[in-house]
């Protein structure tokens, strides 16, 4: 039985708890023992990317001490996993082995069929940090292909950035919006009802645009799709 620590990320903990709950359900279903160290807060990514390095160092140190001694930290976010694995060491800390969710499932647990059921037409946005920083490649797609009932449609120009980029989305809101518009066009072209990704930050951005324009496409995090089963199918969270 594999012991893992969940790093939910501050964004998901606070705004998208359904994703974190789904991650727990999924990992437990696959035989893991999940721990959630309650002292966790934030990996420092926003601070680092915006130029507040000293704060980022503090948060990296905090992260390392909260998760010290863990065999595996699982993160339902490509960009936060990237921050922990690729940036924090440069800030002088030694984080424990950390995996983005799809990497953990495919590389560590060695599964692609997680027994999920999700009867919807879905398109997948690979998110830049998963793709380029982590090199997660098509692991999420491999997982999605095994989901029963799921109709996977390829997203045109999938590798193009959605325009989120953390504080970029507000510092350069116009450019970010122009990028978002093209991403939404590609999403709409697929005719999918659900857009999924491994990162709630990008989903919040693209989803916020899709919602504003009443497009009828819903953002759903990859973890929620993979957690969904015939017995306990995914249902939209009521807020």
């Amino acid at each position: 039985m594999k012991k893992v620590a969940l790093f939910a990320t501050c964004l998901t903990d606070t705004l998208f708890p359904a994703t974190a709950r789904a991650t727990v359900r999924l990992l437990e279903r696959l035989g893991c023992t999940v721990d959630f160290p309650l002292d966790q807060t934030c990996c420092g990514q926003v601070h680092f990317n915006t130029g507040y390095r000293a704060h980022a160092v503090d948060l990296a140190e905090r992260f390392a001490s909260v998760f010290a001694g863990q065999d595996a930290v699982v993160v339902p976010s490509g960009s936060c996993a990237g921050m922990v694995r690729h940036v924090q060491p440069d800030l002088g800390t030694v984080p424990p082995p950390t995996y983005e969710l799809s990497e953990f499932l495919v590389d560590v647990l060695g599964v692609t069929d997680v027994g999920a059921y999700f009867p919807h037409r879905v398109t997948f946005h690979p998110t830049c940090h998963s793709l380029r920083m982590l090199g997660a490649g098509d692991k999420p797609l491999a997982l999605l292909r095994e989901v029963r009932g799921l109709e996977l449609v390829e997203l045109p120009q999938a590798e193009q950035c959605c325009g989120f980029g953390g504080t970029f989305a507000v510092k350069n809101a116009d450019t970010s919006t122009a990028m978002l518009a093209d991403k939404m066009r590609c999403v709409l072209d697929t005719g999918a009802e659900v857009l999924t990704a491994g990162d709630n930050s990008c989903l919040m951005h693209i989803g916020g645009g899709l919602s504003r324009l009443r497009t009828g496409v819903r953002p759903v995090h990859l973890a929620e799709i993979l957690a969904s089963t015939e017995e306990e199918p995914w249902a939209p969270e009521t807020r």
């Binding site: 705004l15 998208f16 989305a169 809101a173 978002l180 645009g209 969270e237």
Partner: peptide, 11 residues
């Protein structure tokens, strides 16, 4: 943010 995007409602 909200000039072009809806914001998520906190849970």
């Amino acid at each position: 943010w909200t000039s072009s995007r809806d914001a998520p409602v906190p849970a």
